[in-house]
């Protein structure tokens, strides 16, 4: 009985491996590369000189007051796109509250006159450590600071933020977000 099942086991394993482990990924790659080449390559942002300056889907770290800041990142070093990770700090862990306190202090230090409550996504670490987005509230919280440091009008900064805002899918699914790297590259006068 055992030997009778050995041949089908080995042969079906090989055939299903070819089908699902070779042909299927190759078929997806073929279609992806020809129809959605940019996305299939990681939605990379390439500068005028042909240098890769990031990906629209992968966040970068910003702590200069002239930039919009993103989520905290628990990877090492921060925003390490070859080793994604969350903080995995439990809600009752004092390390979590310490991180939040430090972040609140850092945000206050560069914008001492801002007395508004700080949106929670700006003081917490994302799940991936690579979150490219923040909420609209988190972007507006920093708007006046960025405008002041750069000597721009708040109106101009707000326009840039709006330009890099993604709404909900069909107006209902997901949450509206601002792409941090997109805003900062535009602020720096980057042209693709």
């Amino acid at each position: 009985m055992l030997l009778a099942q050995l041949r089908p086991a080995i042969v079906s394993f090989i055939l299903l491996t070819v089908l699902t482990g070779v042909l299927y990924p190759l078929a997806v790659t073929g279609i992806a590369q020809s129809v959605f080449h940019k996305q299939a390559q990681g939605s990379l942002i390439v500068s005028g000189e042909g240098r890769i300056v990031g990906s629209t889907l992968i966040g970068q770290n910003f702590d200069d007051p002239k930039y919009l800041w993103g989520r905290l990142s628990a990877t090492s070093p921060v925003y390490n796109a070859s080793s994604s990770s969350g903080s995995n700090l439990g809600p009752s862990n004092s390390a979590l509250t310490d991180n939040v306190k430090a972040r609140v202090a850092a945000l206050k230090a560069v914008d001492p006159n801002n007395t508004a409550l700080i949106p929670v996504d700006l003081v917490t670490a994302s799940g991936s450590g690579l979150d490219p987005h923040i909420s609209l509230a988190a972007a507006y919280y920093q708007l006046a600071r960025v405008a002041r440091v750069r000597g721009l009008s708040e109106e101009a900064v707000k326009n840039i933020i709006t330009q890099h805002t993604d709404g909900r899918f069909l107006g209902v699914i997901g949450e509206p977000v601002v792409n941090v790297l997109g805003v900062n590259l535009t602020l720096d006068g980057y042209r693709s």
Partner: peptide, 12 residues
């Protein structure tokens, strides 16, 4: 303007 809530470990 924001989802709020417990955002530690969650994506915006």
């Amino acid at each position: 303007l924001q989802p709020g809530g417990n955002m530690e470990g969650k994506e915006a």
